[in-house]
Design a protein around this nucleic acid. Structure first.
Lengths: 241, 241
DNA sequence: CAACAAATGTGAGCAGTGCTCTTGACTTGC
DNA sequence: GCAAGTCAAGAGCACTGCTCACATTTGTTG
């Protein structure tokens, strides 16, 4: 199966080709505006100007400004996922620590390179905009699935401490959630480790968000690379890897 | 010293009183709009309508929309700081674990109660708006100062592991930053513990941000209170408390 | 090739935004 | 009582998202 865009596998007509090209141009220009001015300032009229067309014309291709935001959201999730996959895949499957570090660095590098896109994905929600779950959950779960995949593989290989250091009791309600996740994803890691994995996940993005969103202040931390590396190292220890 | 609004300590004239009241009303209405529609959708015209006045009139009291945002920012920082202080202060000074847990819960409770204010403080920056550092760094550092204060007091009292479990080497550049922080705040905690404290700080807000910003998905975690408590417990272990 | 229909671009228009400026009214202090 | 200071009003500019009637282009089909 190569493509499942439509029921019939007709080759695209010239019209369809031109239309797809225009939509691609709109997304490209939207990304530029997003990078320059941020998500909440994204203007369909400005995109139309750059496209050399009157503002109402873009509505032929994009339903609304929110629709364009959704397209940019999916685009950004895809790019982040690709970056993470590329960074992880160059390391051998058994190098669990290396793969975790590569994942963390890939996310941070991308976030620092595309702060507006990162803000769109992981920052405050854009007012009046609700991402359609049916179109964004798929691309939006690539990084976390990759992360738990690394943890699970490490656990299966016996490279991970079966019980986390200094065990913390997990209340039943939380255990139920974790059990459901384990079951749904077919994981073998015990729930206590999975819980730590969730903390590592949120902590990773917390550290990156602080840096991208300027919470560290202007000059408190000069050695940000080293700080992040240290944080990754400690997080490795948390999950027992 | 009660107030240092002006150089002379004259009692406020009726004009000044009325003016201060109007500014307070604008902030109050601004907070309502912020809570309802988010920061980027904050409209001075809408506030003016609610105030029963024409839009240009509010410019007599507030320089610009960004100025109003700054006022709301300071207001929110103050409210968060008060909540944290109140939650921490009811516990005895020597209950370091309890104080840490109280701080974390207070931040989370406030964030869930005022998600738009939380987003204004810790989410993506509002496009085109740059918070004036000279007015916001003071209120914005209350929580982290309180947090390191708890850690430092615990260390001074010998209630904290002097060396964190499973030591991670700290590179020189990062050590310099940490040393400067220690010196500036007059802390006694060793740099390795301070570094972990920074991770705990970012991880705490990472966990809260994920919850407030909806990164967990709709129904993956039903037991969010328990999840957060678990995260707090693990974070306690990270810093050796 | 010509004709037709679908797809696409145009420009006006509505309601909203931040912000500025002039004008007139009002309050305060002398 | 009057001048000075203060304030609200309203018009106006440039921008936004979005809709709609109309014109033009374009691909397909008779």
């Amino acid at each position: 199966m190569t493509r499942t865009l439509s029921t019939q596998e007709k080759p695209p007509t010239p019209r369809e080709r031109a239309r797809a090209q225009t939509v691609a141009d709109i997304i490209r220009l939207g990304r530029e505006h997003l990078a320059l001015h941020g998500a909440a300032a994204l203007s369909l009229r400005a995109v139309a100007r750059d496209l050399g067309v009157v503002s109402s014309a873009v509505y032929r291709y994009v339903e609304s400004r929110d629709e364009l935001l959704t397209l940019l959201l999916i685009d950004a999730y895809g790019e982040l996922g690709d970056q993470v996959d590329a960074a992880v895949d160059i390391l051998p499957e058994g190098d669990y620590r290396g793969r975790f570090l590569a994942l963390g660095r890939a996310v941070r590098d991308w976030a620092l390179r595309e702060p507006s896109s990162y803000a769109l994905l992981f920052g405050s929600p854009v007012p009046g905009y609700q991402a359609p779950a049916e179109r964004t959950t798929g691309p939006g779960t690539r990084v976390i699935y990759r992360l738990v995949g690394i943890f699970d593989a490490a656990h299966r290989a016996g490279a991970m401490a079966a019980e986390p250091p200094s065990a913390v009791v997990i209340p039943p309600a939380l255990a139920r959630d974790l059990h459901a996740i384990r079951h749904e994803l077919g994981l073998s890691v015990p729930e206590a480790v999975l819980a730590r994995g969730v903390l590592v996940w949120t902590s990773l993005f917390g550290a990156i968000s602080f840096e991208v969103f300027g919470q560290y202040g202007a000059d408190t931390f000069a050695a940000r690379d080293e700080l992040f590396e240290h944080q990754l190292a400690v997080l490795l220890g948390i999950v027992g890897l």
